[in-house]
Amino acid sequence: MLGEAERRRFADLLAMVAERQDRDAYAQLFSYYAPRVKSYLMRLGADSALAEEIAQDVMVTVWRKAALFDRTQASVSTWIFRVARNRRIDVFRRAKRPDLDPEETMLLPAGVEAPDARLEAMEADARVRAAMVDLPEEQVSLLRLAFYEGLSHSEIAGKLDLPLGTVKSRIRLAFAKMKARLEDD
């Protein structure tokens, strides 16, 4: 993972792209992110040629939408992930897989989110990372499977050969630890 100084540098670079269409700044972002976005897409099942094409597309979108990047809201990695995820939604039509698994899906009452949550989003991004460093590797990888690769709890259970209930409670625990960390310090 990137350190704080590097994250700040990438945010500066993206701001330079937005403000003055700086091609050198863009080239630096491209050389770091394009190969990682490509890996992400291959992880989701794209072959190398398709992943290359979509990664290109994602990076072109990064140039075009750079002005929408708000460093108080998210890190560059989180923002580029979002662009890549949205392209993924367009490209890999989800026809085969059902939506949110009703067994797992639950909307809970409000009351937890702070009114100034948005002001602190960037800080939250940093704290999520800090909390991830503290979590046992096993929990980090569960969070990754769910939040990054987009596997449902039952798919994760199948993949890791664990009972569904165990997967659910471990993810809940890992996420709760992270939330606690966000609310603490």
């Binding site: 990682r36 490509k38 190398s48 989180t78 949550a117 989003a121 990372r129 939040f147």
Partner: peptide, 17 residues
């Protein structure tokens, strides 16, 4: 932000292709 931040950090952890 939390869920997406987890994914953003995971993107950084990818081995580049």
């Amino acid at each position: 932000i939390e869920g997406e931040a987890i994914a953003g950090a995971a993107l950084e952890a990818e081995a580049p292709t």
